[in-house]
């Protein structure tokens, strides 16, 4: 689907330099560019201010939140304090929730990557009846809303004793991550020259060996994109955990924050600092793996 084109072309985030067709005199260029620069600077500011507001708010006592806007604190940096964070991290609930989020996200990511790579191998390099039909079905499954599965899976988990467990959430995320993941990996694998696998076959490799020694190492860029995409998808999820872990003792960070939301004002210290904590990992990933991240998100936005 849409992802095919995007995975290949859309790497433009890290400043794609392209040749300028014609050069006008420097003064003219500056003059015509000034408004554009001004407009985009304003836009950039508009895009930064909200997140920055949360960041500053998370360093202010609750009473300050009621007294004045966060921007006032910039004039009085002394009023900023880390006590919210200290409080949040010491009392355990949020720390525990961050840990639970990681406990869900890491296995769900690894599982999707492994299972999808295997399946994509079968779809590209193995010949079996019904292969094309299965691929079309996967494309269809890509847009099935996960709401379609919540109730029966909840019932199923009830029978299996998986309801309210991290394992249940992990499996759900894995399953719903698969159609897109397989699609992405398949598209990447079709770009691997068939010669390589034939050479390996003649060299004496079986399918498992070809998968492990040839396809998997060559698929690393796609695996990275997929892994990052899936990681963020799961890390940022609210709905699935809300349904399967709603009343559980250990909930992920999104659910933990959600449970504080009724008292938005009074709990702003906790909500703002916890929210920011929940954003740190995604932001680190974003800034360190921008390329893979953009590719993954672009390819995956069709979900």
């Amino acid at each position: 689907m849409t992802a095919t084109a995007m995975t290949t072309t859309a790497e433009s985030l890290p400043g794609s330099a392209r040749p300028r067709a014609r050069r006008r005199p420097r003064a003219v260029r500056l003059l015509t560019r000034a408004p554009v620069n001004a407009v985009l600077a304003a836009v950039a500011l508009l895009w930064l201010v909200p997140s920055f507001g949360l960041l500053v708010t998370s360093f202010r006592p609750t009473k300050d939140y009621f007294a004045s806007g966060w921007w006032r604190a910039l004039l009085h940096p002394a009023t900023l304090t880390v006590s919210n964070y200290r409080h949040v991290l010491q009392t355990g609930g949020i720390k525990d929730a961050l840990f639970t989020t990681a406990l869900i996200t890491v296995p769900a990511t690894v599982l999707v990557v492994v299972v999808a790579s295997l399946a994509a191998y079968a779809l590209v390099f193995l010949r079996w009846p019904g292969r094309d039909a299965v691929f079309v079905a996967l494309v269809a499954l890509m847009v099935v809303p996960l709401q379609m599965a919540l109730i029966p899976v909840a019932t199923l988990y009830g029978h299996l004793g998986l309801f309210g467990t991290v394992a249940g959430v992990v499996l759900f995320h894995t399953a719903f991550g698969l159609p897109f993941a397989i699609f992405l990996m398949r598209n990447f694998y079709t770009g691997i020259p068939k010669d390589l696998l034939e050479a390996a076959r003649i060299d004496g490799a079986g399918d498992l060996m070809m998968f492990l020694r040839i396809v998997l190492p060559l698929g690393r860029p796609a695996l990275a994109s997929l892994g990052i995409f899936q990681f963020l998808w799961v890390w940022n999820d609210l709905l699935v955990s809300l349904v399967f872990l709603g009343g559980a003792r250990h909930v992920p960070i999104t659910v933990a924050i959600f449970s504080q939301l009724r008292q938005f004002g009074p709990n702003i210290d906790l909500i703002s600092s916890a929210s920011f904590l929940s954003m740190i990992v995604p932001l680190i990933i974003f800034f360190s793996f921008q390329r893979y991240f953009v590719r993954g998100v672009l390819a995956g936005a069709v979900k």
Binding site: G15, S51, L54, N236, L238, S275, M279
Partner: peptide, 28 residues
């Protein structure tokens, strides 16, 4: 513009954050 890389990063950044956290940001 010359700083298009920075601009793109800034505007793209919210994609990394959860929708839920973005909601809280905007609630403030």
């Amino acid at each position: 513009i010359r700083w298009s890389t920075a601009f793109k990063a800034i505007v793209f950044m919210p994609m990394a954050i959860s929708l839920f956290a973005s909601g809280i940001i905007w609630r403030i």
